[in-house]
Each structure stands twice: as structure tokens, then as C-alpha cells.
Design a protein around this nucleic acid. Sequence first.
DNA 1: GTGAAAGCGCTAACAG
DNA 2: CTGTTAGCGCTTTCAC
Lengths: 340, 340
Amino acid sequence: MVTIYDIAEKAKVSAMTVSRVINESGRISEKTRQRVKKVMEEMHYIPNHMARSLVLQQTNLLYLLITDITNPFYTTVARGAEDAARKSGFRLLFGNSDENLSKEADYIDTILASRADGVLVAPAGDASLPHLSLLRQHKVPFVLLDREVPGIDCDVVLGDSNEGGRALVDYLVSLGHQNIAFVNGSSTVSSARHRLQGYLEGLKQNGLPFRESYCMEASFGMINDLTDMEAWLSSIDPFPSAIIAGNNVLALETIRLLRGRGLSIPSDVSVCCFDDFGPFSEIDPFMTVIAQQAYEFGYQGAQLLLERIKNRDFSEPWSKIVLPTELKPGRSVAERVHES
Amino acid sequence: MVTIYDIAEKAKVSAMTVSRVINESGRISEKTRQRVKKVMEEMHYIPNHMARSLVLQQTNLLYLLITDITNPFYTTVARGAEDAARKSGFRLLFGNSDENLSKEADYIDTILASRADGVLVAPAGDASLPHLSLLRQHKVPFVLLDREVPGIDCDVVLGDSNEGGRALVDYLVSLGHQNIAFVNGSSTVSSARHRLQGYLEGLKQNGLPFRESYCMEASFGMINDLTDMEAWLSSIDPFPSAIIAGNNVLALETIRLLRGRGLSIPSDVSVCCFDDFGPFSEIDPFMTVIAQQAYEFGYQGAQLLLERIKNRDFSEPWSKIVLPTELKPGRSVAERVHES
DNA sequence: GTGAAAGCGCTAACAG
DNA sequence: CTGTTAGCGCTTTCAC
């Protein structure tokens, strides 16, 4: 491996001079600068980030932890975060927790051990608290995306899930639906709680009764065992004319189950959900969704983080950005002429 | 920051002993091991990867470079690669080149500078050659995914694009189509070349003539300026009854343009493409596609890479894995009763 | 079983 | 403008 000492020797200067040329720091005569640069090229020198970070105590490295890399919501978040990071000369690395606390813990370890300058985290849920406390304890600045975690104060970028829930109910009611069920993610995830609350408020605003049996708690992640959801669908009575899913994955699974029961969407049941299906579903937007500004989650989250890193300010007051949502009608919801 | 020296001092041993406890190397009495472990916990010690990698000259770090993080094909590749890497105790970091050579070059620099143990690359195209040569020059093992690059010999995992192209033409012909156009990615990308060849062979097999004007060369990436494609669509004569797109992004753009011209898919024109649209489009598979085993691209690619790293064998013979494709019919292709 | 010394590649601080 | 010294946190080598 070529080091600055190899360069120094060949260019007949000291290692320090080489370092100065690389970092464009300090005053150096144009002549030696050119000579050093030439030797660096000749020897195909590549600086060693680790050695540099070790002495500088900073890595210029940001991490983004998401819970599902195949989910178009998160990949769009990733792109936003990456754009913001690049603009500030930071590198961004991704980790994928799969809604799994132990994978998340692994990534937090990796992040801690690699001394990242900051982290953007979409936490798996409230139980992510110990991981975040660990980051705080080790003074690694972080920003939460999409989900907040009770017990930890920090910058956070959220979607207006509450408003989204109300909008979805309003929309369904305006089309004649009155029996509206809700399959949600785990109540250990803040966005699930807010979405449920929006749903409840929507019902109330429209003078609709809340039925316990109309609500089901599942998981936001890709789970394989759908027995519980299947059982729930069998048990709902009267069967709803519309179902709201807590996110895009749940919508997918719900639709599969409904079709498995021989039901058609939307002629038998209408289905809609939170989160859109990404650019690759735009040609034929089947699902009625509450779209979120995914790119902005990443971009603005990264900006908050970079701001703190630059100012070396890791304390209150914390920012809380709440991004608006937008209802995008698709073909998965139909008008209900008369309620059964 | 807590270092092994802090631990050593408090546990009344030398730093070396602490190091041995951490790495479970060398013989250590159970008593001191326990004491050291206890102190490490008390002091919330986190090992410093950089310092360790600096002396060990290995990072346990793999990179995956993809060309479009929002493309479901690549995110599924990523998941496969991650699973394989984790199984072997390697960390996997992602980079996103956006089909952009200069972003790709930046990532290669970063990878080189951070001394990754290996890289999985979906290259932007043939012009990625210098980047790959750089990796080779610095003895960083790498495996190419999805695309090969003339001029560089290495392990590679490809899809059977040729076969896919023939299958697509066969399928269209079986439905009565004879005027089949092809919007392809850049001919500087190997998969585009193979797909074109499959298309040509498909035509030949079915006794269909090749018309120069039926082929268009665009880009696989999300490009904003669709003027060329628009012009091409205006110029084709006779207008095709079916269009094959070189990948999912091109299919998306083609459909937008066709609809912009007031045409309906599939009643006016049938459209199909290479690459599927990911799990989030499965509920309602609009597009007829040549699906690829995306997960296997990542998984098997990572395995090839890990194999080489473990054996410290970075020379010939190189492996070339060609994964089969599968035609998945959707609603975007219709039967053609009589050809105009 | 345990420790001391040296060095991985780099840069901050100080000299000159 | 340029060089010397010391040290970032860790592990290898060789003693004891």
C-alpha cells in the first residue's frame, strides 16, 4: 500500500508536506505542490480514510437506518438523505433493519464502532429506546425519521399521520362507506398510534360508531404468518365495505387475503392505505393512498443532522418537522351506493 | 472516548490483556477475563473499528454499488447481498450511482479510501472500465452484477437477457403481434446489448423482418428529457402494435408518453419489458415482464466475493453465473386479432 | 498467562 | 514555507 511516506520519499519532502498538499492546508510553494501531486499520481496514491479519521476523530460518515429497503417509501427517503449528505460532502451509508430489533441493535453497534458522525434512524418501534439511548450516551447525534420514540428527546421528521387518517375516513364516507375497518401496524410504533387516532377522529367527525372488532393490530413489516389477519377477516361482522391499511405492506397482504377469500377489490371491498407505492406503480395507480413526502423526510432529516454536526450543538431545543400528507385516489376504492 | 487503556487501568491489567479478552485470542485466566469483561460493561466500552482495521489491514466491510436505489430490482439485489454478507459476519454498505459515471467514480474513491474488503458493482456501463481497473490495480476484489464490462475479467452474475428477449418476442407473436418495436437502454450497457440481440433472434425465429426504425436507444436511468423518445414515437411508421422496453424504467416512461399521445395500453398498444416491478406491484401486475431473480443476483454475487476474500484468491479462473428469467404476463399486453 | 515495545497511516502542534 | 515529534486506538511480536 502506498502511504504518504512513500510519496514523501520519492518527492524528497517530508510526510507533513504531502499531508498539506492532500488537505490543501497551510502554505506550500507552488513548485513543491506540483512535484508532490505528480508523484502521488505516479504512485496511484489513495488516502487512507481510517488513518485520517482516527486522528481527526471524525469520519465524515453518516448512516441511514431504515426498516425495509424494498419499501419504496424508504428508498425514496434514502435518496433524499443521500442528496443532502452529498451536498455537504458527507458520505451516506445505509443499513436495513427489517423491522427487527436485533438487526437494528447490530447496526447500532456497527455505527458506534465505526464512529459515524451522525445517524438518521427510522426506528423499529418504541423498543428501539435502548439503542437510541446508546447513541445518546456515546454522544452520536441522531435524527428520527417517520417514527418517534417515547423516552428520548431528539430531532424528528414525521408525517401527519393523524391528518392522513381523518382524510382517509372522510374520503370513504364521502363515497358512501360506513363500515370501515382498520388493519394497523403494531401499537409499539408511533406512526401506527397516530394513524389509529386519525381513524378514530375521522369516525367521530362523521358520526360513525367505533367498533372494537373493526380494528386489527398486525405488523408494518413483511411478515409471513398471516393467520391472525386471516382469522380477523373471518370474524368481522358485519363485514366492512372498506378497509384501511396502516401502511403499504399491510395493504398488500390484506388484498392478498381478501382475494384468497374470493373477494374482488373494489367491487366487494374497497381498500386504501397509508404510504404510496412508489414511482413504479405510478403508471397504473391501483391503490388509493395517503402519500407522504418521502424524499423530504430524508432530505430535511439529513439537513437537521448536518446542522447539528456543523454547529457541534447536540442539545435542546429539538426540532420537530411534521410533513403534510396527500390523498391520492386509485382504483382500489369504489363508491358504495347503499350500505348493507 | 473509552479505550482499552481505560479498561486496562481500571481492571489492573495491561491493554494487551484487554485486547485478548475482546478478541478471545490467546490464553487468559478465567478470573481476569471476567474482571475485564465486567469493567468493559461498566465503562460502556465500544471497540474502535477504525483503529482495529488500521492495524489488521482488513475492514470486514463490503460495498454494494447499485445504479438506482429506487428501482425494486436493485433493492431486492441489495437484500440478497446483505443476507449473504451477514451470514459471513461481514457488514454491507450501499452506494447509489444513479447510472452516473461521476457519482460512480466518487463511490469508487470512497471505497478505495475506506479499504473495503470487497465490492459488488452493478456498473453504470462499459465506461465504468477505468473505475474497475482502479479496483483491480489496488487489489480490491470485486464481482460484477447484472452487467459485464468488456476489457475486465472478473466474477460476474448476469441474467439471461438474450433468452428473455426471445421469450418476449415469442409471446407477442403468439398473441398475433407482428409489428414489435424496442426501446432499449444505452448500447454501452452489456445487458442492453444482450436484450437487443435476444429481440433480433426472436424476430428471426418468427420470420419477422428487422426494421431499423423500430429500435430506439435511450437510457436505463430516470432521465428527464424524453424528447428523443417522443420524437421516435412520432416517427415510427407503421406504428407498432407492441413495444418492448429494455427495463422497467423505460417501460414506465414509454407508457407515460403513449398515454400522453392519447393511446391506451393495451387496447391501442401493448407494452412489456425486462425486469419486474417488485413486490409492491404484485397485487395488481399491470405490466407483462421478464422477471429476474433479483435476490439471487445479490446473494450469489456476495457468495462469490466472500469465497475469494476467504481464500485470498483474486485471480483466474473467473466465475460467470447466468440466472434464468421468467416471463410473467400482465394486463399490459393484449391479443392482436388481425395485424394492421 | 501476562506485559512492553513498536507500528498501522495519518495530522496537530510546534519549531525553524 | 517546511520538518520533527507525538499520538489517535488497536494488535503483533517477543519477552518474562
